[in-house]
Each structure stands twice: as C-alpha cells, then as structure tokens.
C-alpha cells in the first residue's frame, strides 16, 4: 500500500513537472539572422519626466487602487512609489540593475514574498539594456530573446513602427510574467499590464495626465 501511494505520488509529481514545464513557444515565429546584440528598453528613461499612473492591483481576489509613480533620478537609479488615492505612501523603492533599496513600505505589505515579487517585476520593467541571444520574426513582431541562466526574456517589438509592446518572462522555459505595453511614444507607455501566471497577481497601470 505504502509502495503504491509512493508510486502514485511520484507519478503525479512527474506529471505536474512535465505539464508545468511546457516550453514557452513564440507562435508562428522564425529565427532570423541579425547583428543586433542589445535590446534597449526606453520606457521610463527620460529623467525630465514624472511617470505617473493610476494603479489597479488584483491580488488573490483582493483589489487595491492607488497612484504609481516612477522617476529616473540618476543614470542608474529609478525611484518607484505607490500611494493610495488619498496620497498615503504604500511603498517607496529605489531600483537599479544591481541594487534595490527600500525607503518605505507600509506594514501590511512588508512581507518577503510581496517585496521579492515586486522587486523582480520592477527590475524587469525598468532595466534599460538586455543582451540579445536570438532574434525571431512572426509577421507582426520582431522578438528578441535574452537568456539569463534559467531565465529567458522575450521582448516583442512591432514590425511596422518598432515600438516595444510586450515582454514575456520565462523561468525554465515556462511563462511566468507577461508585461503588455501600449506605447504613447518611445519613452512613455500610456498603459501597462503586468500579468503573473503562477500567482494570482495582475497590475494594471494607466497614465494620468498630470
């Protein structure tokens, strides 16, 4: 009986691993020869601009609303702040490619899992330069594939206007987070959706005309 249970458990686990390891595939894309070695994310890159968004966050059935602010404060650091609609600060981070500093986080959000998830999201959202390993095309988009150990990022640019519209972040080739951008111009996305696939978290940002 014990043996049977163990076998069942192992089979189930194997099945889960196999199913969850289904590789991320770019639909209808062909690899193309390219000399491009760097993908540049220009969103949030203008130090003169206050990037201000209305934020709507859905997390495990709960809704959170507020105002999300990003500003490039020097060559490598972005300041990221989330406040309630009334203006109370919920979190205040300084994010760079190599460093992450917490200036403030409200007690209810001060949990390791929350901080780590947001940290990873914000680094991906703000990181300016990514090395390119492979380039694909699928008719509507040019896709830049960038490997970082067991993590791979797919950056989608529109074929017609070269605007950056999507980032798919995978771990062990499984899609974990998708960032969708609606560009206003090359340095400003007027709407951003950050959709997590392994946890119930969706962050919607809509530009506020300030």
């Amino acid at each position: 009986m014990q043996k049977l249970t163990t076998r069942f458990l192992v089979t189930s686990l194997l099945l889960i691993v196999l199913v969850s390891c289904k590789s991320y595939q770019i639909e209808g894309a062909n690899k193309v020869a390219s000399a491009i070695t760097n993908f540049q994310n220009l969103y949030f890159s203008n130090p003169e601009t206050d990037y201000v968004y209305k934020a709507h966050i859905e997390v495990y059935g709960n809704d959170l609303s507020g105002v999300f602010v990003v500003k490039k404060i020097n060559d490598s650091i972005h300041r990221v702040v989330l406040t309630t609609d009334f203006g109370n600060k919920l979190l205040d981070f300084e994010v760079s490619e190599t460093d992450f500093k917490i200036n403030y986080v409200v007690e209810n959000l001060n949990k390791k899992i929350v901080i780590n998830t947001l940290k990873k999201d914000f680094v991906l959202l703000l990181k300016a330069n990514h090395k390119v390993d492979e380039v694909f095309e699928n008719g509507t988009s040019i896709i830049f594939k960038s490997n970082e150990g067991n993590r791979t990022n797919f950056f989608y640019e529109n074929s017609d206007d070269n605007q950056y519209v999507k980032l798919v972040h995978t771990i062990h080739a499984k899609e974990k987070v998708t960032f969708s951008f609606l560009p206003k111009n090359t340095t400003f996305a007027e709407s951003i959706i950050i959709q997590h696939h392994n946890i119930k978290l969706k962050i919607e940002l809509t530009q506020i005309n300030n």
């Binding site: 201000v52 602010v69 406040t83």
Partner: peptide, 11 residues
C-alpha cells in the same frame, strides 16, 4: 501629492 523627487505635484 508632493513627492520631493518629482518635478511637479500630482494633482
């Protein structure tokens, strides 16, 4: 909303 690092208050 005044945040010191912003160039303009959020209105």
């Amino acid at each position: 909303k005044h945040l010191d690092f912003l160039s303009k208050d959020i209105e």
